[in-house]
């Protein structure tokens, strides 16, 4: 009995939390930014298909997720911001994975990976409505 109580005391506390939202990065490459701006410093590079965790605020409500907003996410040990439109609810069919042998022939270097990630931050994107 004593052993059981000791073990119970030593167990980590089970935090009260709401549902954890996981999303997937949808572009070829990308960046996790320090702040909600395309020009803020990059904390980490992302690749298509990487899973990120949507961060909940103190009240347990997830950050507002709309096409035009920036969302705060956690990727590994890093927390930062990314444009909401770059994230998908399900794992996308990534070009690099789908055409892996073809893609590898181009021998994309690390600095190209970084630059490619910056490219999506620089796009001005839009679409005309559905009829």
């Amino acid at each position: 009995m004593k052993t059981f109580l000791v073990l119970l005391f030593l167990m980590p506390p089970i935090a009260q939390s709401g549902p954890i939202h996981y999303l997937y990065y949808g572009n070829m490459y990308g960046h996790l930014h320090q702040g909600p701006s395309s020009y803020s410093d990059s904390l980490k590079s992302l690749t298509c298909g990487d899973r990120v965790q949507l961060i909940q605020d103190k009240s347990g409500v997830t950050t507002e997720f709309s096409r035009f907003s920036w969302v705060k996410i956690k990727y590994g040990p890093n927390e930062g911001f990314i444009r909401a439109e770059f994230l998908d609810k399900s794992k996308p069919k990534c070009f690099q994975a789908k055409y892996i042998k073809f893609f590898n022939q181009f021998k994309i270097e690390l600095n190209d990976v970084f630059t490619w990630g910056r490219l999506y931050d620089q796009y001005v994107t839009g679409s005309s409505k559905v009829r």
Binding site: T125, G126, S127, K129
Partner: peptide, 20 residues
């Protein structure tokens, strides 16, 4: 602006990216 312009000309469901 460009999205509304396209709609006015009858170009619907066009996704575009502009790189300045």
């Amino acid at each position: 602006y460009f999205a509304r312009f396209l709609e006015d000309l009858g170009y619907y469901e066009i996704k575009f990216k502009v790189l300045l």
